[in-house]
Measured scan of single mutants.
Amino acid sequence: MATKAVCVLKGDGPVQGIINFEQKESNGPVKVWGSIKGLTEGLHGFHVHEFGDNTAGCTSAGPHFNPLSRKHGGPKDEERHVGDLGNVTADKDGVADVSIEDSVISLSGDHCIIGRTLVVHEKADDLGKGGNEESTKTGNAGSRLACGVIGIAQ
């Protein structure tokens, strides 16, 4: 089992970053940390998408990683996509320092995120509470600013 993974985020604009993942036990939580720069100040949706395909930019990554066919939600919700990591918060300089621990994603097994795409979005994720159909699919997080395929790390 891989215990570490990394993702280099890039987009068409100024947004870029490096996100690290570490899972010490196969059924334990995954620590997610790193930094994203070039964002507007505020909240930005942060999700693992189904495919590791960036051939047409971030759009070819498909929908959120959702092997259990659930509705979109927040990272602490029972009803959520596996890939729903909530929001990252950018400061006035456009930098989001990421520090998350998640017990639904994994670096092995059915919820493995390796080979899938991590995406940072234009807007805040409403965590499935926006009151419309799009909220239950995407959290109304808007366009995909930057993305990268999650790969095994040393």
Rank of each mutant, 00 (worst) to 15 (best):
A2W: 05
A2F: 09
A2G: 14
A2Q: 12
K4H: 05
K4L: 08
A5T: 09
A5W: 04
V6R: 10
V6T: 08
V6W: 00
C7P: 01
C7D: 00
C7R: 01
C7Y: 02
V8D: 14
V8Y: 13
K10G: 15
G11Q: 12
D12V: 11
D12E: 15
G13V: 12
V15C: 13
V15M: 09
Q16K: 14
Q16W: 12
Q16I: 14
G17C: 08
G17N: 05
G17R: 01
I18S: 13
I18A: 11
I19F: 09
I19K: 00
I19G: 00
I19L: 13
I19S: 02
N20V: 06
N20Y: 15
F21S: 02
E22M: 14
E22I: 09
Q23I: 07
Q23A: 11
Q23E: 11
Q23C: 12
K24F: 13
K24G: 09
E25T: 07
E25F: 10
S26W: 15
N27A: 09
N27L: 10
N27Q: 04
G28W: 06
G28T: 15
P29L: 15
P29T: 06
V30F: 10
V30E: 03
V30C: 05
K31C: 08
K31R: 07
V32A: 09
V32Q: 04
G34V: 09
G34H: 01
G34D: 00
G34R: 04
K37T: 09
K37L: 11
G38S: 11
G38N: 15
G38M: 12
G38C: 12
T40A: 12
E41I: 14
E41W: 12
G42N: 04
G42M: 14
L43V: 09
H44Y: 04
G45V: 01
G45N: 00
G45Q: 02
F46D: 01
F46Y: 06
F46V: 10
F46K: 03
F46C: 13
H47D: 03
V48E: 01
F51D: 00
G52R: 02
D53M: 00
N54I: 14
N54T: 13
A56V: 09
C58F: 15
T59A: 09
A61S: 09
A61C: 07
G62L: 02
G62S: 00
G62Y: 01
G62C: 03
P63G: 12
P63T: 06
H64Q: 03
H64R: 01
F65L: 14
F65P: 02
N66C: 13
N66S: 13
N66E: 13
N66K: 04
P67Y: 15
P67T: 10
L68I: 15
S69P: 13
S69N: 04
S69G: 14
S69H: 10
R70H: 11
R70W: 08
R70M: 08
K71L: 12
K71D: 13
K71R: 13
G73N: 07
G73W: 02
P75S: 10
P75G: 11
K76Y: 12
K76H: 12
K76M: 13
K76S: 14
K76T: 14
K76A: 14
D77W: 11
D77F: 11
D77Q: 11
D77A: 08
E78P: 14
E78R: 14
E78V: 15
E79T: 07
E79H: 07
E79L: 10
E79V: 11
R80I: 00
H81E: 03
V82C: 08
G83C: 02
G83L: 02
D84P: 00
D84Y: 00
D84T: 02
L85M: 15
L85Y: 04
L85W: 05
L85G: 04
G86D: 04
V88R: 06
T89Y: 14
T89A: 08
A90R: 05
A90Y: 04
D91L: 06
D91H: 12
K92A: 15
K92D: 12
K92C: 12
D93R: 13
G94W: 13
A96H: 04
A96I: 07
D97R: 13
S99C: 07
S99Y: 09
S99R: 14
I100W: 14
I100E: 13
E101Q: 08
E101W: 10
E101G: 11
D102R: 05
D102S: 07
D102M: 11
S103N: 05
V104A: 08
V104G: 11
V104E: 15
I105A: 09
S106I: 06
L107N: 06
L107H: 06
L107I: 11
S108L: 09
S108F: 15
S108C: 09
G109P: 14
G109C: 07
G109H: 14
D110I: 06
C112Y: 11
I113N: 02
I113Q: 00
I113M: 06
I114P: 04
I114F: 05
I114W: 09
G115F: 01
R116G: 00
R116S: 01
T117V: 04
T117K: 04
L118R: 01
L118D: 02
V119W: 00
V119M: 04
V119T: 04
V119E: 01
V120E: 01
V120M: 11
V120I: 12
V120D: 00
H121P: 02
E122W: 10
E122M: 14
K123S: 11
A124I: 10
A124Q: 07
D125P: 03
D125T: 01
D126Q: 04
D126M: 03
L127Q: 06
L127A: 09
L127G: 08
L127H: 05
L127P: 04
L127R: 07
G128E: 01
K129W: 11
K129G: 06
K129I: 06
G130Q: 07
G130N: 09
G131P: 14
G131V: 08
N132M: 12
N132D: 15
N132K: 13
N132P: 09
E133W: 13
E133M: 10
E133P: 07
E134W: 11
S135K: 02
S135W: 02
S135Y: 03
T136Q: 06
T138A: 05
G139R: 01
G139D: 03
G139N: 01
N140E: 15
N140A: 07
N140V: 06
N140W: 04
A141Y: 01
A141F: 00
G142P: 02
S143R: 06
R144M: 02
L145E: 12
L145H: 07
A146F: 15
C147N: 02
C147G: 02
C147L: 01
C147F: 03
G148E: 03
V149I: 12
V149C: 06
V149D: 04
V149Q: 05
I150N: 04
I150S: 02
I150L: 06
I152R: 15
I152K: 04
A153S: 14
A153P: 15
